[in-house]
């Protein structure tokens, strides 16, 4: 996996990781800041997007302000021989925003499948959880859901030059 950003790419990432300027020509503003042409910025941003270094460009809403007060990290202890197949099926559910296999830390932590769900009511999330539970069936030995109580930090990535 790998695109190696050069020095100018890194400067561009550092200049934009906190957000784009809210001005009519934001890329020109960044170009001026870096002492390069706007065309160079546009070309490099497009290249970073095409290479997947930029996942997406746009607005990032605050879950809570949009009414998504129930943000649950559902965690599941799934049999190792079927987790990849079942994990993919859980990831394909329309209401799951992130789904990963992660290592257990026995005896403190026995869950190896993580699926994030978001709802405006507890009932909505409980319904989502019951769909996942039904899908996993007997392959799942135990499960839990960890609701976020508070955002302590949400800045996203911060590279340093």
């Amino acid at each position: 996996m790998g695109y190696r950003p050069d020095e100018l790419d890194r400067k561009l990432i550092v200049a934009t990781q906190g957000g784009l300027p809210l001005s009519p020509m934001p890329y020109a503003d960044i170009a001026a800041q870096l002492g390069i042409d706007e065309a160079e910025v546009l070309k490099r941003m497009q290249n970073l997007l095409d290479n997947g270094v930029i996942r997406r460009i746009g607005v990032v809403p605050n879950h809570y302000t949009l009414g998504y007060t129930f943000n649950g990290m559902t965690v599941w202890d799934v049999a190792d021989d079927v987790i990849d197949q079942l994990g993919q099926q859980v990831g394909n559910l329309p209401f799951v925003s992130h789904c990963y296999r992660r290592p257990r830390h026995l005896p403190d932590w026995s869950y190896n499948l993580f699926a994030m769900v978001h709802g405006k009511t507890r009932a909505e999330v409980d319904e989502q959880i019951s769909v996942i539970r039904a899908l996993l069936g007997e392959a799942c030995r135990q499960s839990d859901v960890l609701f976020s109580q508070r955002i302590l930090k949400k800045t996203g990535l911060r590279l340093q030059l």
């Binding site: 906190g18 941003m45 997007l49 270094v53 930029i54 996942r55 460009i57 302000t65 949009l66 949400k154």
Partner: peptide, 11 residues
């Protein structure tokens, strides 16, 4: 505070 960020999300 409706948006926490606006711009590129880096991977």
């Amino acid at each position: 505070g409706t948006l926490t960020r606006f711009g590129p999300l880096y991977q």
